[in-house]
């Protein structure tokens, strides 16, 4: 059994207004063969106030990534999945 990739999406105020609201749809629109490798969760805030970077934020396997859009999220996730498969 392979390790799953932990994807945490922020649904806090800043991320939400900066486009984070769409990230859930983006993730859920992925095909099953990708989704099965993911462990998706949500967070009320990933600590934007201490960061210089722009929201929305996600965390992939504990690593924070800033400025994520619908498209870049899909890219990032596909990339990660390719690495483990």
């Amino acid at each position: 059994m392979m390790e799953k990739i932990n994807v945490k999406i922020c649904v806090g105020t800043m991320c939400y207004v900066m486009g984070g609201a769409e990230l859930r749809d983006a993730i859920e629109s992925l095909p099953q063969n990708i989704l099965e490798h993911l462990n998706v969760s949500y967070s009320p805030c990933l600590g934007c106030s201490e960061s210089e970077q722009a929201p929305p934020f996600i965390e992939v396997n504990g690593k924070r990534i800033a400025g994520v859009s619908k498209n870049s999220l899909i890219q990032i996730v596909k990339e990660e999945v390719r690495n483990v498969v």
Binding site: V11, T13, Y16, A21, R24, S41, Y42, S43, P44
Partner: peptide, 16 residues
């Protein structure tokens, strides 16, 4: 704490 995605309001982020 855990985000609860079951209660949705299109205008607002979810509750936890």
């Amino acid at each position: 704490m855990e985000v609860d995605m079951n209660i949705v309001d299109k205008e607002l982020p979810p509750i936890s």
